[in-house]
Design a binder for these strands. Structure first.
Lengths: 104, 104
DNA sequence: ATCATAATATCGAATCTCGATATCGGAATT
DNA sequence: AATTCCGATATCGAGATTCGATATTATGAT
């Protein structure tokens, strides 16, 4: 359930991080793992490709510590989508957050 | 993109509504449509079945205005999952909500 | 009984995710 | 500079999910 939510949320999460600093696949995977979510590389990389195809991200190759990496940074279009997403998220989440008294 | 986010969120949304009052498929579809999301009946009904299979919801048939309906209400197990989801959601959402200054 | 209608259920196609495997690029070794 | 190693990225097939069209079901009206 929570995983379901998160899987949908992942794209926005990537956009958010890319809005702070350039990100690459392996960093995202590791960061998520630190937070307790293990997302397959077979999900992350195609997702990054899709975000770039939509022009929300733009990438370039680079080399860090002798390792090849493809870094993605957010575009203006991506920033707008992130901003629009934030609005929708607060709407949607706010409602669900209203407590229901819970039995046991 | 926003749609992607919401699709994962839908199950939690259904649990939330079912925690307030019994819900049925057509009502959920209409409510979402009011909020600007058109979710296929081919998604909603299988989703309801899955939630019942997991024992998060329990259903019974009834008749309203001469129309057959299957109403779902939340179970204790479902309430617990909803509660756990709320905690995770606020964690996940909080981070992404930090504003990035947006150009234009 | 038959029909019309609304709600639910199901179906095939397209898409997404997984995790395993393949590829690719850089650096070290010789 | 060819070979090998290694880590990051890319891709693949299988299973699951979503869509929207179609089928089924249950009810009330004729």
């Amino acid at each position: 359930m929570i995983r379901d939510f998160f899987l949908g949320f992942i794209k926005i999460h990537i956009l958010y991080h890319a809005s702070k600093a350039p990100v690459c696949g392996i960093e995202i995977i590791k960061e998520l793992r630190r937070h307790g979510y293990s997302i397959s590389s077979g999900t992350i990389y195609p997702t990054l490709h899709a975000l770039e195809r939509h022009n929300y991200l733009r990438s370039e190759n680079s080399v860090v510590g002798g390792k090849r990496r493809r870094y993605y940074q957010i575009t203006k279009k991506g920033l707008k989508v992130l901003e629009a997403s934030r609005k929708k998220i607060s709407e949607l989440v706010e409602e669900v957050m209203e407590q229901t008294e819970i039995g046991n």
